[in-house]
Simulated scan of single mutants.
Amino acid sequence: MRDMTASPEMPLVRRLEAVGFRAWPAAEVAYDGSWLIRLTECHDSRRLNSVNPLDPSDSRDIAARLEKASRRFADYGRQLTVRQTPLTPPALIAHMNEAGWQSFAGSIVMIADIPPNESTDSIEHLPTRDIGRFVDARVQICPGEHSAKAALTEIIGAIKPEIGLFVFEDTKIGPSAISLAVHDNDLAGLLQVAVAPEKRGQGIATAIVQSSLRWARLRGARQAWLAVETGNQAARGLYAKFGFREVYRYVYRRPGE
């Protein structure tokens, strides 16, 4: 496994972790030392149901704390999951490795400068304020998420920073692309970017990301961040066109069978 315990940009890693938690809030948040435990009964998102260590030096009583967290997860009907980032204590990583914990769902956190908008200071596509409309579009583009419709509505409604909900529509198929931009001071996060399968490869993803970034720039953001699955080469290629670069990676860990 790639070593993620060290990073030349640890202050940036800490900041991106913090804005990431605000951008996708869990229903229940608890701390065990510097281990942030996030649980959400209504949605099975890994990011919303994971232990997130935030201090590489906080490695006391690892076995006991994992057992305590496991009981908390079990109360929610969830399997204990640790999100391993550069902030995860090396001793915890060693413990999981020795115990045969599985690694899965690797992602890359990226950042890019948002270029100034054109002199008109306007954007062609304005975000909607209708969370229901956005969620309906998400479910239509990603049918497998229909059961999570109510949960997505609740999660998006709980986001505290300013949000821009972008929905592109086609007269024939309805929603063709979506993007959720979260403006947090001088940073903007891009989440939930998706394009209808029949509209991919037509430049729509580029257009909706561009609209999201222009909106964020007008709101005061100067840099944008996002997380993309390691194996999603198409998305990584898209984001590279906008100047996104890798800052760090993370994976999820669970106890082996």
Rank of each mutant, 00 (worst) to 15 (best):
G174V: 11
M1L: 11
E28L: 13
E154W: 00
H95K: 01
T120I: 07
T171S: 14
Q102F: 10
L180V: 09
Y76S: 11
D75L: 15
R253Q: 15
E41G: 02
G220H: 12
R78Y: 15
R214C: 11
A194D: 08
I155E: 07
L54M: 12
T120A: 08
K241F: 08
A148V: 02
I173E: 12
V251P: 04
Y76E: 10
A99T: 10
R15F: 12
L12C: 12
L87D: 04
S7C: 15
A158K: 00
N117E: 14
E169T: 07
E145P: 00
V135D: 10
M96Q: 08
L213I: 07
R65N: 03
P89D: 06
E28D: 14
N117A: 12
A196Y: 13
D44G: 00
D136L: 02
L187Q: 02
S57E: 15
L87F: 02
V51R: 02
T5F: 05
V193H: 03
L12G: 06
P89Q: 04
G157T: 01
F134C: 09
L187R: 01
L213F: 12
P175I: 04
F21Q: 02
I108L: 05
R133K: 11
G174M: 10
A224D: 05
E229W: 03
R65E: 01
L87P: 03
A188P: 01
F21I: 03
V182P: 00
N97R: 06
S34A: 14
D32H: 09
S122A: 15
A205K: 03
M96G: 04
F21S: 00
G174T: 11
G203V: 10
G77P: 05
A112F: 08
G256Y: 07
T40C: 08
S50L: 07
E28Q: 14
F21A: 05
K199Q: 15
P90M: 12
D184A: 00
I163L: 03
R219K: 13
L54I: 02
A224R: 05
A150I: 03
R14W: 08
A23W: 00
A194Y: 03
A151Y: 08
I159G: 01
T206I: 04
A235H: 09
A196T: 10
M96T: 07
S7W: 15
L213M: 15
V29S: 12
